[in-house]
Amino acid sequence: MRLSKLGVGLLSSLVLGLLITNPCCLADQGEEILRSAVNAPFHTDFEGIMESVFYTPTKTYTFKTKIIYQKSNFVYIEYLEPARIKGKIIIDNGKERIEYTPVNNKIDKLSSFASPKIEKIKQKALGVMLNNFEISRLSREVMRGREVYVISLNPRYPIGPLLKLWIDRKTYLPLKKEKYKPDGRLSSLLCYVEAKFGEHFPREIFYSKLPKIAANEKIEQDLFYYSREEIKKRVNFPLSFPAYLPPGYIFQGGEIIERERTVKLIYTDGLEVIILFQRPYTDILMRKNQWIKWGNLRVRFKESPHGKVFTWNKDKKTFVLIGELPLEEFVKIIQSIK
């Protein structure tokens, strides 16, 4: 009897062990963790200081930000470093987003990024990302005294970035993020250097940090995304679209900005975003740029901390293309624009 009980026990432990270590099971767990992590910031009481490092071929940029999440749908962001952006404050209360810039002592009011509308967009983007990235749970670790899941997002296409996330096991809040370029080089590292969970503050404290100046209301104008056909009808100049898109990318929507004079076409693979701007001919001021010539087309190019920036003129229009992709992909996109 005892022997048979022992055998059953051993067998069940073996099955459990296999289930836990099974990569498919871990992959499913990874997906579940990521799904929970997308909305976690809006349902957590948290205060932390995030250090963000961005690597470019020529320079490394480091930023420090104080981030406070409060249940529910409240975000407070204060920029601490570098000096030139110190003091900038963003408050998002789920209804509106208030941005204060001390350099020009200006307050802008925009639509909330924690609104149901944005949540819908995020869910759609999540679906796109799950198609383009293989999500796997790598391990469990302890970070600053808290247990975290380490998950990895591996691109299904060779042009995508590789992402590693450290997600808090209790709250599903991402605490660390490493992003690698397709060639394996680290492109950015974001990590909380200080983190306190369960801290709750009265919201008035945050609003009192804003100066008493009139806000520039932009709520009615932004966050309207049109389909290709809709946006064509809404502008008074002929629109061009790229015939080629990098694998995994889809058209997410179009916006009209700059007093109805600029069209912004948004493409995404769920993780990265490519934006194609176009407007009637305009002189674009861009410093530290270099010229690239492809056939008859002369394109100005620069590498910024968050991606590559291209601008050129064609058919009495000015185009700007921004994104984080290998150069060859941008060449294909630009040449296919009709």
Partner: peptide, 23 residues
């Protein structure tokens, strides 16, 4: 505008840290 859209459309983008890199 690009960074703003990235924050909205990317699934795992942190709230605004790189937004002011451009400044």
């Amino acid at each position: 505008e690009y960074l703003r859209s990235k924050e909205i459309f990317s699934v795992v983008e942190e709230p605004a840290p790189p937004l002011l890199l451009v400044s």
